[in-house]
Simulated assay, not measured.
Amino acid sequence: MQFAPAFPSLARHWLAAILAAALTMLPMGPISGPALAQGEPEFFEQPYAEGQWNIGRRLNESQFRYCVDKRDGDWEVAAAIADAIAGALLLEPQRYVVDSEIVQEDVTRVYALLLEHCDVHMGFKLIPEGYGNWAMLTRPYYDAQYVFVASDPALQSLADLPPGRPIGATIGTSAHVRLMSYLTALPAEQRWPAFPMGTNGLALESLRNGVVDVALVWAPEFWARQRQDEAFAEMHVIASDPLPPTVLPVGGVLLSKETFLRSAVDEAIAALRADGSLTQILEDFDFPAIAAP
């Protein structure tokens, strides 16, 4: 804070009085109550979007506005499912495709998209307690797995991989955590080295380049890579034995205030599941997932 040159003494006295008053209000003993959590994921923070107070309520209530992100391997499948949801609700689908070269973005971007462009953002893993109070999740529309991928035809399951051979695992995923827990319980001579990879793409590139013998990745991402690049065509999914499969449901995210819309979307997803529409969409894309129960 800056003050006019004519009043330096007055400014100092004023600040001193405010500071003294503030100090008298502090408790003399130890502060009770829960401490502030440190290092929480950014998704738990209340985000702020630039100019959010200037974004008004949309006027066209006959549309189902949804976002899909081209960086997600399943974005075309998610768009087809969203179009089906719109049809079930007798609304016109309004698609907004997020196209960005940034590998990962913070929660502010998702918050801004929901304010400006879409009512539902498709393609989120429904991880329990994984989202802040500002966000709300739909019911899942499909379940997919993290899969072990190999290029050696002799490898048909993880159990076929000799000890000491490297695995590249997408870091921080529930599948990665499960793998590390299993390896920690093994004797050192029976373990596979597990190299953390920043993204699914890096894990698959490491497999292609021979850096690792097996990659642990999100199945929809591997599916997308095989469609886009012939270099991945010869790779195949192997059984996860001796580990159980890691399955996660996938759905959409909305702003928490959109409770009526969430209920309507959930009912539409349930109807599409019951009449076989979701299963048909997944089969049409030959997509590695099943319709969520």
Rank of each mutant, 00 (worst) to 15 (best):
E221D: 14
A264G: 09
R191Y: 02
N200I: 06
T199A: 02
V250W: 13
A264Q: 14
D229M: 06
G168T: 01
A224S: 12
A215E: 05
R178C: 02
V237S: 00
A188K: 06
T170M: 04
A274I: 11
A274Q: 13
S181N: 15
D213W: 01
S206I: 03
D160L: 05
E189K: 03
P153V: 09
A239Y: 04
R273I: 10
F195E: 07
I167P: 02
L204A: 06
L158E: 05
V217E: 02
L158D: 00
A231N: 15
V177H: 05
E234S: 15
W218K: 00
S157W: 04
A150Q: 02
A271M: 12
G252A: 14
R165Q: 08
D266Y: 13
R225S: 03
L243Q: 11
T173I: 01
D241Q: 15
G210P: 02
V211G: 07
S181T: 14
H176I: 04
L186H: 04
L248C: 07
N209Y: 11
P245N: 10
A274S: 14
Q156R: 01
L183P: 03
A271L: 11
A203K: 02
L158H: 05
D266T: 13
E189W: 00
G276T: 12
S157G: 11
F260Q: 12
G168M: 00
D275H: 14
G276Q: 06
L243R: 06
V250M: 11
W223K: 05
A175P: 01
P242C: 09
I171D: 03
T184L: 02
P162T: 02
H176N: 09
V253N: 06
W218I: 08
D213R: 12
T184W: 07
L158C: 03
E234D: 15
E230S: 15
A215N: 01
Y182T: 06
A239S: 15
A270G: 10
G172C: 01
I238L: 13
V212K: 06
G201D: 11
T170H: 07
D152H: 01
Q226C: 11
V214T: 08
Y182S: 06
T259M: 13
V247M: 13
L243K: 05
I171L: 03
L278T: 13
W192Y: 04
I269Y: 09
R165A: 07
A219E: 11
A150G: 01
E258Y: 14
S277M: 10
M180W: 07
F195W: 08
V212Q: 00
E205P: 00
K257M: 13
S256N: 14
A159F: 00
L207P: 06
S206H: 10
F260T: 15
V212H: 06
A268C: 10
G168W: 04
R227Q: 11
R208G: 03
P166I: 10
D241M: 12
T173P: 04
A154G: 12
R262P: 09
P163W: 04
E205L: 05
E258L: 15
G168Q: 02
L216F: 03
K257Q: 15
P220C: 05
E234P: 14
T184R: 13
L243M: 15
F232A: 15
